[in-house]
Design a protein around this nucleic acid. Structure first.
Lengths: 195, 195
DNA sequence: CCTTTTGCTTGACACTGTGTAAATTGACAG
DNA sequence: CTGTCAATTTACACAGTGTCAAGCAAAAGG
């Protein structure tokens, strides 16, 4: 990203990011990452205890680089519940493609690695918090659909917004990001709000 | 399943099934499967070329055991498009929990193994065919929602019915199978049909 | 009855990838 | 000059997959 040769730790994180992005889910080998970063394989272990922690650190590195908090501001300052829901779907839906490569890798590793699993679930719980806030705002307005209680509605929104669903529509079905986003915004409103 | 000591190949498949079911996604080791089947590790390689093919064979074994074709009959013989959609969601949604353990494992392996990936996608394409048929039936009735063309509607139904979504709702959110099924039937109708 | 075949066993081994450890080099600070 | 820090190289232990060769026991076939 930057050109004035950052420190080794940062170079490693950038290399990991680049590799996972170019091959989402495949869990690059430590030697690949080392080569990409222009460093010995053992140097990786001087900065990160193991591969899982390196990947987890990469997700945090991304969150900083993208300034997550900044992105959520429009959603937080929305006036009505409906606006808040819409802004949240928009914000998260736009964020997915940026983090997809690394997130997907972590998700795959989560199946076999306990630390990766913990990190992945934490991340998904954070995302759920955004869903819950939108649902609360709807409920406060009295515009939440009546079929579900707040928890159930949050479950539905959270599932709807999963990275897996983004992957299915944009990667397997070939939808553009714009089409995905338009569909999800409409779907969320249709399923969760009452007119 | 049966008790009159079946042949070795079948015993291996049953052992694999049991292990993958008891720990979905974790990709049991060949030695574990061998122990479970009461057979040497090498015997596995006499019947299956490698672990991936063993798992693929296990999914086919399951499909036979469950008589997939039988399950789809109600959906195929439905009169209206709406009935057909509903029967399809019901049929597939009820099938997921039965195949979850093995399917999930295959899905995880698909990220790193080319053969597993091919098998997984084939399976998902078969499932998509059921979605497409339901959408076609709606379109023929003139009850398909107008926001999407047939392909788009199929994409949406297929995504909605993914194993990942079943997993999110029933395993992560703690929904019962009945609740999942009721929700999905309603959701499919709400999103895909017009009144 | 002996021979062959079939199906499985045991034991050894090559290969890949992770993670650990020890000894070495080069640069820089006091 | 000395100590220290960051990174390097080389070596190795360990787990798990897949391959290979030799042996063995029971069924099948003449």
């Amino acid at each position: 990203m930057s050109s004035q040769e950052p420190n080794t730790r940062t170079r490693i994180l950038e290399a990991t990011w680049a590799l996972l992005d170019s091959n989402p889910g495949v869990a690059a080998r430590m030697s690949d990452i080392a080569r990409q970063a222009g460093v010995s394989r053992q140097a990786l272990y001087l900065h990160f205890p193991n591969r899982t922690e390196l990947f987890i650190a990469t997700t945090k590195f991304q969150d900083e680089a993208f300034n997550v908090e900044e992105r959520l501001r429009p959603s937080r300052s929305a006036q009505t519940g409906l606006e808040r829901l819409d802004a949240w779907v928009e914000a998260w839906g736009s964020y997915i493609p940026k983090i997809y490569g690394v997130a997907k890798t972590l998700r795959v590793m989560a199946e076999t690695d306990a630390d990766a699993s913990r990190a992945w679930h934490e991340r998904m719980q954070d995302m759920r918090e955004g869903c819950a806030a939108a649902v609360r705002a709807l409920a406060a307005d009295g515009t939440l659909v009546q079929d579900h209680d707040e928890t159930g509605a949050t479950d539905i929104l959270w599932t709807m917004l999963s990275i897996d669903n983004w992957e299915a529509l944009t990667r397997d079905c070939g939808w553009s990001q714009d089409r995905y986003l338009a569909h999800l915004r409409k779907l969320a409103i249709q399923v969760l709000t009452r007119v």
